[in-house]
C-alpha cells in the first residue's frame, strides 16, 4: 500500500498522530509482548560503553534495550505513555523513561555520552522531519559522544514483504492484534488490524541524512532488513 500524502508540518504532525502514535498507544502491550530480543548491533553498541556513561534511548518503546547494560544510566523516552509505563518497570533498573516527542526532547545539548534511536525516525512522514530527528539526537551528544541510528531498509530481498530496491518507500504496514473475546462471551478470538506508517530507507539515505544535519558517520551497515549508522558531531578543531 502506498502512503503519505503529507505536505506541511501541521499535516505531518496530525498524520503521524493518526498513523503512528495512536497505533502504538493502542497496541502497546501486545507489541511489547513480541519485542524482547535485542538486535545484535544494538546490544554490542550498548555493551561497549564505559561504565558510568550517561545516554538516551529516543523512542525506547517497551524499554527492551534498557536492560542490556546496567553499568550505564539511560534516560529512555517515547511518545506512547502506555509503552513508557512498560519501560519504567523494575526489571529495567537502574534506567528511567519519560514521555516525550523525538522532535522536542527534554534534554540539554552537549551533555550525553551516547544515544540510540532504534526503529524510530522511519515513522516520521517527511524527509525534513526525519533529518530533524537525527539532528535532535546528535545535538544532545557531548564532544566525542556517539549515537546509533537504526531504521527499516527498502532492500529486504529475503523478507516475506517483497520490498526491494526501486520500490515505493512510503508504506503502510499492518499490525494485526488478536485478543480473546472471553469477556463478551463470544467464542474464539477477534482480530483488529492497525496500519502504521513507515518510510523505508534506501541504501545510503541514512548516511546522507546524518551528514545533512552536520553529523559524521563513524560506521554504518546493514543488519537483517535494517540500515544502521553510528554517528557523532564533528570534533572541534
Amino acid at each position: 500500500m502506498n502512503a503519505n500524502p503529507v505536505v506541511g508540518t501541521e499535516e505531518a504532525e496530525s498524520y503521524e498522530e493518526q498513523h503512528v502514535h495512536e497505533v502504538y498507544e493502542q497496541i502497546a502491550s501486545h507489541f511489547s509482548s513480541t519485542r524482547y530480543k535485542p538486535w545484535p548491533i544494538v546490544s554490542s553498541f550498548l555493551s561497549s560503553l564505559r561504565p558510568g556513561s550517561i545516554g538516551l534511548d529516543v523512542g525506547c518503546g517497551n524499554g527492551k534495550y534498557l536492560a542490556v547494560n546496567r553499568d550505564v544510566f539511560i534516560v529512555g523516552s517515547d511518545r506512547s505513555s502506555n509503552l513508557v509505563k512498560i519501560a519504567s518497570q523494575s526489571q529495567n533498573q537502574p534506567h528511567a523513561a519519560v514521555v516525550a516527542d523525538s522532535l522536542a526532547l527534554p534534554h540539554q545539548k552537549d551533555r550525553f555520552d551516547f544515544a540510540i534511536s532504534i526503529a524510530v525516525v522511519h515513522h516520521l512522514s517527511t524527509r525534513e522531519r526525519r533529518r530533524e530527528a537525527v539532528g535532535a539526537v546528535l545535538e544532545c551528544l557531548r564532544d566525542g559522544g556517539r549515537a546509533l541510528v537504526y531504521v527499516w531498509a527498502l532492500e529486504q530481498k529475503g523478507s516475506r514483504r517483497g520490498w526491494d530496491e526501486g520500490g515505493e518507500q512510503d508504506v503502510m504496514v499492518p499490525w494485526v492484534m488478536k485478543s480473546s473475546k472471553k469477556d463478551v462471551g463470544e467464542a474464539g478470538e477477534t482480530e483488529k488490524t492497525f496500519q502504521r506508517f513507515y518510510h523505508l530507507y534506501r541504501k545510503g539515505e541514512l548516511e546522507e541524512d546524518v551528514v545533512e544535519v552536520g553529523g559524521e558517520v563513524v560506521e554504518s551497515g546493514y543488519e537483517k532488513d535494517n540500515w544502521w549508522a553510528i554517528c557523532r558531531r564533528p570534533l572541534k578543531e
Binding site: 544510566f73 519519560v98 516527542d101 526532547l105 527534554p106 534534554h107 540539554q108 545539548k109
Partner: peptide, 18 residues
C-alpha cells in the same frame, strides 16, 4: 521518577535550551 533522572532533563521548548 528518580531524582537522578531529573539531573538529565530540561524544558522541551527549543528556545529554553540556551
Amino acid at each position: 521518577m528518580k531524582v537522578l533522572t531529573l539531573n538529565f532533563l530540561t524544558c522541551a521548548v527549543k528556545a529554553c535550551k540556551s
